[in-house]
């Protein structure tokens, strides 16, 4: 099979898989809804079918609770996977993902602060907005500190991110110790990742950053391909290396920050999706980025379905489900890379 045919096959498979898993996720849950009825209910909303076959209770569950949650899962997965693909090109490391950006600990600090101050219980969207602000502040701090001594190298940027992450994590620990025990569950659930209780407003918050951010990264696909050749080679080809690097870094953080704010920590998605797809669709950004978005969306929708299906007494943390899949994959990939090295 030619590389082009293989790529087309992968895109076709993803294009079929995504609607199927979305439908499965809309049908399955604490209250099962027949897939056919879900489809007919959707058509009824569009005016293309008579009255919905779902009872009123089913309509409420489908349209008020399940649909926003499933769409957020798709956006979270897609966003993280695109960010992972972009960072793997940027860092020329196939095992890079959003965890390198330092936005996760910043978001966690914002979220814990919102819980500690009681905002999360009193004000709608306080927790995701505080987490988003934490993520963006961390990004700003990384940028300012890294540029304090002139243009930073890639490793300088990374190490600054690590230091800011450590600071934010330390602040989170202090607040966690001080938080009232009744509020601890809220914090722990957020830190472990999950989509319970998320509605259309959370969807709008995530979509407002993920869709334009992912689109902008796709526009930068070609400069990213050039960057993956190496710094000197890119500069020789006339690419403004520092500017593109900062732009990609900033866009990745702008996508990953709100995603983390809405869903908490969802690890390994950004690593697994692009890493698994690279041998199938090739390393070029214009193929890898959209394929990663679709695969990431499929992965997180399925993971969220598993998270809410398996635990009767408590919903499994979404971050744990993705880690159960992602960590073994990461170890295998690492061994493979070391074997090649």
């Amino acid at each position: 099979m030619s590389e082009r045919d293989r790529r087309l096959l992968v895109f076709a498979a993803l294009a079929v898989a995504l609607p199927l898993v979305l439908l499965a996720a809309l049908s399955l849950g604490s209250v099962p809804l027949p897939a056919g009825s879900v489809v007919r209910s959707g058509l009824a909303r569009l005016g293309a079918y008579g009255p919905t076959p779902l009872p009123e209770m089913g309509e409420v569950i489908l349209w008020s609770v399940r649909l926003p949650r499933v769409l957020i899962a798709a956006l979270v997965g897609g966003g993280l996977a695109v960010v992972g693909a972009a960072l793997q090109s940027l860092f020329r490391n196939p095992l890079a993902d959003a965890g390198l950006l330092g936005v996760g600990p910043g978001a966690a600090l914002g979220a814990v602060l919102a819980v500690n101050l009681g905002w999360a219980q009193q004000r709608f969207l306080a927790m995701p907005l505080a987490a988003c602000a934490g993520a963006l502040l961390a990004l700003l701090l990384i940028y300012v500190i890294a540029h304090a001594g002139g243009r930073p190298t890639l490793s300088g940027l990374l190490l600054t991110g690590l230091a800011v992450s450590a600071l934010a994590a330390a602040g989170t620990s202090v607040l966690l110790v001080a938080v009232e025990e009744f509020r601890v569950r809220t914090v722990l659930f957020w830190l472990a990742g999950g989509l319970e209780g998320r509605g259309y407003e959370h969807l709008a918050l995530a979509a407002g950053f993920v869709l334009p951010g992912a689109a902008a990264l796709l526009v930068l696909a070609r400069p990213l391909d050039v960057l993956s050749l190496g710094e000197e080679e890119s500069a020789a080809l006339g690419l403004p290396v520092h500017g593109v690097r900062i732009l990609v870094f900033g866009l990745c953080a702008l996508v990953a920050g709100p995603v983390t704010a809405v869903a908490g920590s969802v690890p390994f998605v950004g690593l697994v999706a692009p890493h698994a797809l690279r041998p199938l669709v090739g390393p070029l950004g214009r193929h890898l980025l959209p394929a990663s978005f679709l695969a990431g969306a499929v992965l997180v929708v399925v993971a969220d379905l598993a998270a809410r299906s398996f635990g009767e007494y408590v919903e499994l943390p979404l971050g744990s489900v993705t880690a159960f899949v992602g960590a073994p994959y990461f170890l295998l990939a690492l061994r493979g890379q070391e074997g090649r090295g």
Partner: peptide
């Protein structure tokens, strides 16, 4: 657990929540 889908299915006309329930969950 506080599973909103199950709660909706029970068709309650009042849900009693605690002080510590998230504002985001209450909006939903």
């Amino acid at each position: 657990r506080a599973d909103l889908e199950r709660i909706i299915a029970l068709r309650p006309d009042l849900v009693v929540v605690s002080e510590y329930t998230d504002a985001d969950f209450l909006r939903l």
